[in-house]
């Protein structure tokens, strides 16, 4: 076991390289995902059919085919068509397109669920369609879409592991190297999985932070936020205390009524 840890210590610089590749893919992929999602999501809510229909086709296409097919298409087929991307760009592109299509659906449904009164109010104030979207609708939709986006970005992080199929040396590849140099499968993969888990947890925390910020900007509380839960717990405790006081009072009442008789019985 100590052998494993000394190997791990010597391996740390290489492991860090792998983590960096995974982080670059995750961050660049997430940025690409959100840009694509917003563009396609807005296009899908457009009243113009010439925007809505192509966006819908693109989204269904990238949601319907597998991530790996898209990645291999970018990596193997594009060079044959004369476009040469380096593996890192292929990875980022495939991740952004695939998860961007999933997220576009989230963007669309969030925009659709913003209270219709908000649309009407913005029209009544004769805001231009662009200002209506930027100042009124999108900030509210943004707060709604963050939890689903968080799930998708964690999926994206998990999806980055595919890039080792196209010769990139990411965390997954480094774990396999660690496995070969320690000869201990369980040890190497446990280390790797824990690193991925921590990264997923960081994404979740970051998105929670963004959500708090977005809801605060709207002057709203996040549903089921920590302070809400604390308040609920306090209320429940208070109620229980009152209940107990009441029942004790009732018991005392009964006891005081019984009291003299009891004493009398004792005598």
């Amino acid at each position: 076991m100590t052998d494993n840890f000394t190997t791990l210590l010597n391996f740390l610089p290489q492991l860090w390289e792998g983590i960096q590749t995974t982080l670059i893919l995750t961050i660049a992929g997430s940025i690409g995902t959100i840009i694509i999602a917003v563009i396609l999501g807005l296009a899908m809510t457009s009243p113009h059919a010439w925007l809505r229909i192509p966006a819908r086709i693109i989204v269904e296409f990238f949601r319907g085919t597998s991530l790996l097919v898209q990645l291999f298409w970018l990596f193997y087929v594009l060079p044959l068509l004369g476009v040469d991307l380096d593996p890192l760009m292929c990875g980022i592109g495939a991740l952004a397109l695939n998860y961007g299509a999933y997220s576009a659906e989230v963007v669309r449904s969030s925009i659709k669920t913003v209270n219709p009164g908000q649309w009407e109010a913005a029209i009544a104030l004769s805001l231009s369609p662009t200002r209506r979207m930027i100042r009124v609708i999108f900030p509210q939709a943004w707060a709604l879409m963050i939890p689903s986006l968080a799930t998708l970005l964690i999926q994206l992080l998990k999806g980055t592991a595919v890039v080792f199929f196209i010769t990139l040396s990411d965390l997954t590849d480094k774990i396999q190297q660690l496995r070969q140099s320690t000869g201990d499968t369980v040890f190497a993969f446990t280390v790797g999985l824990v690193i991925y888990f921590v990264m997923a947890w960081l994404i979740q925390e970051l998105m929670n932070l963004l959500e708090r910020q977005a809801t605060r900007r709207l002057g709203r509380r996040r549903p089921n936020s920590r302070s809400d839960r604390r308040d609920a717990r306090r209320d429940a405790r208070e109620e229980l205390r009152l209940d107990r006081l009441k029942s004790r009072a009732a018991a005392n009442d009964g006891a005081s009524k019984l009291g003299p008789a009891g004493q009398g019985g004792g005598l």
């Binding site: 964690i154 992080l157 998990k158 999806g159 980055t160 592991a161 595919v162 080792f164 997954t172 774990i175 396999q176 496995r179 499968t185 369980v186 993969f189 790797g192 999985l193 991925y196 888990f197 997923a200 947890w201």
Partner: peptide
């Protein structure tokens, strides 16, 4: 459950595959 959910399927596949072959 959270651990399995939030770690890549590919790494899990490799893990179990190699662990079994050991």
């Amino acid at each position: 459950v959270a651990f399995i959910r939030n770690t890549p399927l590919i790494v899990q596949l490799l893990f179990v595959y190699f662990a079994f072959s050991d």
